[in-house]
Computed example of a mutant assay.
Amino acid sequence: MTSAPANLLAVRTLLLAYLNVDKNVVRDADLEPAEVGIVGDPSHRGGYHCGSDRVVTNDYSVVESTRDRSGLTLYASALDVGTFSVRSGGATHTLRTFSTWLVAQCAANAADSRDIREVIYSADGRTVRRWDRLGRRTGGDSSHLYHTHISFFRDSTKAGRDQTPLFRRYLTAIGLIAPPKPEPEMEQTDKLVRDTGSSSRTVGDVLADLQNLRNWLISPANTTGLITQPAADSPLRQMLAMLQGWPALVAQVNALSGKDFTDEQQIITGVLAGLPPEKIAAAIPPQIARNVADELSRRLTA
């Protein structure tokens, strides 16, 4: 069964929120809920107010555009807006001025109007006109002297594409919705310009360090690459000192890695010093023990 899609219901809600001024009383000046329609009445057949269960053979709302053929669903894809009159921004805004504004946006191909296929309206209350994006038709029946019909390509309805931006833009243009506030510019006070978190360093000092570091990093080896020498206590000076000492440190490590730090005699002396004589004797094989005893005897009698 043909039904109203959420994206067009959102447009309806938006218009009623601002153009139905007195929501507790039915007034000719207000846009009343009964004057904003999406789905045609049960006897309505054919056209954008009908979904796939109500379209007719060779229905213009289906066959004239691939966007409509590919987007045909049970959703209706049109919105009717009735008469209203509202004062805002020192001017009176009506269905006719709204319709004229809307057609101008469509004719200018505004980005938020490109899902609109056609607008059937009257700019003067006497002549019905039709703006048709496909250029197929130029008029409409006399009922459009009192309401404006807006058709949306069916693929946009099928996709649920948000259609409120265009209508919100209209309500903003006539002063019913306040324009968004511009983002405040960053405050450029002396404090922000000069404060670096250190009382002894200015922004200029920091920028100079960054420039020096950049120049040093891209300079050939064995050159300073600095425009100016950084202060002795600056982070850049400390960083450069560490980096400049790196080659010497690498050379020292390489030199030490080639040395043998093992002193066998010192190791043996240390081991023997920690053992009692009987342990040393027990550890010596008999023949070696006799040889050692003979050598010691010889040394003692010499």
Rank of each mutant, 00 (worst) to 15 (best):
D41M: 02
G37T: 09
P33L: 03
F98N: 06
K181D: 03
S142I: 09
T148M: 02
V119W: 02
G175M: 10
E185N: 11
G245P: 00
R133Y: 08
I120G: 04
I38E: 00
T97E: 14
G51E: 09
Q163C: 10
R129T: 14
V203H: 15
E187Y: 12
P220C: 00
A6D: 03
D205L: 00
V62L: 13
A104T: 15
D155L: 01
L145G: 12
G89S: 05
S61V: 00
R133A: 12
A208I: 03
V103F: 01
R298Y: 13
Q163Y: 02
T196L: 02
W131L: 12
D294P: 11
G245R: 02
D115G: 07
E118C: 15
S200M: 08
R54C: 02
G90V: 05
L19F: 05
R69S: 10
C106V: 12
A6C: 11
Y121M: 10
L176Y: 08
C50Y: 04
A108P: 05
D190Q: 09
R137Y: 06
K279A: 05
S200T: 13
V250S: 05
T223N: 07
S113L: 08
G71V: 03
V128D: 03
N24K: 04
K158V: 06
Q244F: 06
F84E: 04
C106Q: 13
P235Q: 03
G90C: 11
R87N: 04
S65R: 07
A289Q: 09
M1V: 08
A293F: 07
L79Y: 01
N20F: 03
N109W: 12
A282Q: 14
W131C: 11
G258Y: 07
A104E: 15
M186E: 15
V21W: 03
R298C: 15
L300W: 15
N254W: 11
